[in-house]
Every structure is written in structure tokens, then in C-alpha cells.
Design a protein around this nucleic acid. Structure first.
Lengths: 233, 233
DNA sequence: AAGTGGTCTAGACCACACC
DNA sequence: GTGTGGTCTAGACCACTTC
């Protein structure tokens, strides 16, 4: 008897994943080429291509022209982290969002920030420190440097109405960004703002965003203790 | 004069991104449908589809049948986090990898772990505590519970030769997993093992993996201070 | 040189959501 | 009902890489 044709790329992918998972195709082994699989599955090569390309993006297959497709030996799995605007992050938890600007001034960045952004150390930038609250509890402390040249209208924004985070996402956007996740002990200022104790372990996100070659903003986000970032692999 | 045809999905995507970024298409606005764009760009609809589908996956477009395609108002950007095996993570830093098993026993998991894994509390599991080292410096402390029923051969593994992490990736695999990132203060045991002080802020990863409906392993990874997880948006 | 994946085309049908 | 994106097909050519 012949197996029924697999005529959707998802069903092809499921069958390929089954063969990987059940070791029908061993790690490191080469698998049949697209034309052969298409013939076996009774579908077009493009359908097989879609299924295999997707698995390669997920890190389960290694594909190279001429060399063929192999089962990855040590799969480097990918986790997709959503980076929402802070207001949505708070509201998704069912809490009421509020934010408070603590300090704002036009000044030159410290050398390390200027270096990250490839800006001259004497460039005048907008520096903000702000607190984001969930149900009036401190949620996130933000220390942000904004490149005024790339977002001149930022100077006219009413930050009681909208956070810099949200305004920038909506009005400037970015083409690429760097993200660093780490842990840090709360310093006295952070501890007071986040209503915790000095030394408490904080989850910290450093983010730099660019629009083409132009730096937009650099921000350090220190989350209140208890924050967890969750995703699936 | 007419613009030259855009005949690769990347060039179509670049042009669409330009229009989003330069506000030719405003956030929330509906953009022309695939057929119209294909006509304008002088390519097949499938090419436009590939470009737009990819942008939708990245969170820059919202697509719905019949409703059409809109520019996302508050883009939820996605960051892709690579989850390599620990040995590769250390070696990528140019350090020599070594790991040491601290303790191993067959026992029942604490209720919270059993709950995460949907296992009866009296299920006998393999419990491991191990240290991963980079150039003989503590890099990562690992506390792992393994479901023996799904990986019976684990009992015969020589953990001086290979870490449980690497063995499981190569020999069992998984179909899905949960990942939680957080920060925690080092307890006395962790502080000693990681050669730091009690209370130091540690970057912590909790990971649970499944093979279909069957739980494979649950692991808590506490990285030595200074660890940073980096990626791009 | 030749085999493999990568992509494009033109056409078709379908699924879904909005009307 | 009807318009939109989602997908499949068959065929073709191309790019890359290994031989």
C-alpha cells in the first residue's frame, strides 16, 4: 500500500520532524533531496522546499547547495523573544499602566554611551530617567539617551501623555537594534525607585536601536524583582 | 519613466520596508493588496507574498484574509535568542570548557518540579547538580531533573565524558520547550560554587523540555556574575 | 562539470473574514 | 456573496558548492 499524499507543507514538515525525532534520519545524516521527497510525498518540490527551509531556520536542518540537507548534530534551538512596548507588557498582566518621568535634561552622554552609539562625546542628547508602574507598583526603571538629531520632535512631546518608549516606536521606528540581557544588584537609587532593597537582583535589559546608520536611542531597563521573561523554544 | 522591476523577494521587502520606515505608508494604514503590488513591482504575486509574509512574521505588518494588510501600529519586535549547548557557549567565548558533576541521585522531585512536568510527585527521576567551567572558572551552575522513563539510557552515561545537556540534545531531542529568564540573588551554595558572594545577582534560565506530551527534563541554569545574553532585534 | 537548494513565474483553488 | 491572503503546482532558470 502507498501512503496518502502529503499535500500541505505543514504535513510534510510534521513527517520530516517525526523522522528526525524518531531517528529514522540520524543526526548528521544526509536526507533525500527535495525532488526525491516531493516524489515520495506526492507533492510539488516547492512544498517540500517550504517545509525544509522552515526547519532549517529553526536550526533542525543544515542545508547547502550541492551538498544537500543534513540533520543538525547539535541543534542550536532558537527562542523568539517578543519585545513589546512597556505599556502593553503591563496591561497584558492585567494591571493598570502608569509612567512617571523622574528627570529629563539635554546634556552630553557619558563616554561609554557615546561610544555605543558612535556619537561624538560632546553631542547634546536628551537624557531621561523614568519609572513605569503596574497598578501603582514600580515595574520598571528606565534610563534612556535619545539622539535629538534623529528625533527632533521628541522635544515637543508631552511625556505625561505618552512614554518615550511608545512615542519612539510609533514615530521613529528603527531598522535594527542590539539587545543585552543580564542581572545586576540594585544600587541605592534603583532600590528606592523600585521599592526594594539595595542589592536585590534585578533583571536588566540594555537596548540600542538604529535607523540605518543613525543611532536613535540607548536605554537601560531595570525590572523590579520578581520579573520573569517567558517564551517557548 | 518607470521604475525597474523588483524581481527578488528581498528587493520587494526592502522597498516595502522603506515605505513603512519613511512613512509613505502610515502606521495602521492598509497597503495595496498582493496583486496590485505585484503589478506595480513587475513580479509574480508569490514573490510579493514571500516578502510580506516575512515582514508579518517579524511583526511589522498585520495580515488578515479579506481585511488586507496593514502597517502594524505598535510593532512588537522579535528578538531571536540562540540556545546553544553550554559547551559551545563556552568555546565560542574562546575558553576551554570543562564540567563537573557535583551530585547525582535517583529520587522524587519536589512538588513544584513534578507540577511543572505533569508527573506524579512520587515518580523517580534523575537529579543532577553540575558545574560548567570556562578556563577553570565557574561559568554556570546547573540543577537538573531528568525523566528516566523518557531517557532510560541516561543511567548508563559517563558524565565525565559528556554533560547531560549535550547528551540529551544529541540522544533525545525535544519537540517543544518553555524558557523563563530571570534574575536571582545567589544563595550560599550557589555563591560558593560560582566563586562569588552571597547575594550576588545571577542571571537565571529555567528551561523545561518536552517530547510530544512526555516531559524530558527540567533545568535551572544560574550563570556566574558578569554573564550577558546578547542578540539583535 | 554537475548536483543541489533557492527562487521566480503563471495559474489555480481554497479558507477565511467581512459584508 | 465576495475579496483577500494562503497555498499548491509544474516548470524553469539560477547560484552556489562540491567534485
Amino acid at each position: 500500500m502507498t501512503a496518502p499524499a502529503l499535500q500541505s507543507w505543514q504535513s510534510v514538515q510534521a513527517e520530516v520532524m517525526r523522522r528526525i525525532n524518531e531517528r529514522v534520519w540520524l543526526p548528521g545524516a544526509i536526507i533525500p533531496n527535495e525532488a526525491e521527497l516531493a516524489a515520495e510525498f506526492g507533492c510539488a518540490r516547492a512544498t517540500v522546499n517550504r517545509a525544509l527551509r522552515d526547519l532549517a531556520e529553526k536550526g533542525l536542518l543544515d542545508r547547502r547547495r550541492k551538498a544537500g540537507t543534513r540533520v543538525t548534530v547539535n541543534p542550536v534551538r532558537k527562542a523568539i523573544l517578543d519585545i513589546p512596548i512597556t505599556r502593553h507588557e503591563v496591561e497584558r498582566r492585567g494591571a493598570v499602566y502608569r509612567h512617571a518621568l523622574i528627570e529629563q535634561q539635554r546634556t552630553s552622554p557619558p563616554p561609554v554611551v557615546a561610544g555605543w552609539l558612535n556619537l561624538a562625546p560632546d553631542t547634546e542628547m536628551l537624557h531621561q530617567r523614568a519609572l513605569h508602574l503596574a497598578d501603582s507598583q514600580p515595574f520598571l526603571y528606565e534610563d534612556r539617551w535619545i539622539n535629538i538629531a534623529e528625533a527632533p520632535q521628541i522635544l515637543d512631546v508631552d511625556f505625561d501623555t505618552i512614554s518615550a518608549n511608545e512615542w519612539l516606536v510609533q514615530n521613529v521606528g528603527f531598522t535594527k537594534g542590539d539587545l543585552t540581557l543580564s542581572a545586576a544588584n540594585a544600587d541605592p537609587v534603583e532600590a528606592e525607585l523600585l521599592a526594594t532593597q539595595e542589592g536585590a537582583a534585578l533583571f536588566v535589559v540594555d537596548r540600542t536601536t538604529w535607523n540605518g546608520a543613525a543611532p536613535i536611542t540607548q536605554v537601560r531597563l531595570a525590572y523590579a524583582p520578581g520579573f520573569r521573561m517567558q517564551t517557548t523554544i
